[in-house]
């Protein structure tokens, strides 16, 4: 019964709606407000449940071809996961090491990881882009990006 993927999704959405509703019912209500802070969230929560049920009972319309599309080769999945990890590392180190250094490392290794092999161009771009962007932001726009361990 759970075979068509849209049924699984609909159950997941119902779970989300129940969690959301649970939080909505915790919201305080004030006697002097006509429509309370929780009114809209409650409508949304129940609305989502209703729509999810509707989705659950719609017959499957997906063609085989579309299903195929969802199948991602393992190699690609690894690449995506790798890039996500690099993004997380980028965020983590952004304020610690500074914008220029982290961006340099990110662009260089991310491009390399995705199969870019012209190392000299890669090196040049990954150093020039962040540097130009950094100076444009700090000097021209007056927006300070984290300078980090590079002392300027």
């Amino acid at each position: 019964m759970l075979k068509p993927v849209h049924r699984k999704i609909s159950l997941l959405l119902i779970a989300l709606a129940i969690f959301y509703l649970y939080l909505a019912y915790q919201l305080p209500s004030f006697s002097n407000s006509v429509i309370n802070a929780s009114t809209m969230p409650k409508i949304l929560g129940f609305g989502l449940i209703a729509l999810s049920l509707f989705l659950f009972f719609t017959p499957e319309q997906e063609t085989k071809e579309e299903k195929e599309k969802r199948h991602i080769p393992k190699a690609d999945l690894i690449k995506i996961a790798g890039v996500v990890l690099m993004i997380l590392a980028y965020i983590f180190f952004l304020e610690r090491l500074g914008f220029i250094l982290v961006s340099f490392l990110f662009i260089y290794f991310c491009s390399y990881f995705l199969g870019y092999t012209k190392h000299s161009i890669n090196f040049l771009v990954s150093i020039l882009f962040p540097a130009i962007l950094y100076s444009a932001f700090t000097m021209l726009l007056g927006i300070s990006l984290p300078s980090g361990i590079i002392p300027f």
Partner: peptide
Amino acid sequence: PLLISLVIMFSMIGVYSISFNTFDLY
């Protein structure tokens, strides 16, 4: 590959320059 890295970096900096908060990046 290079374009992908640059787009990611641009998006991050766009968001970061609004709030200066890495929470928004996550």
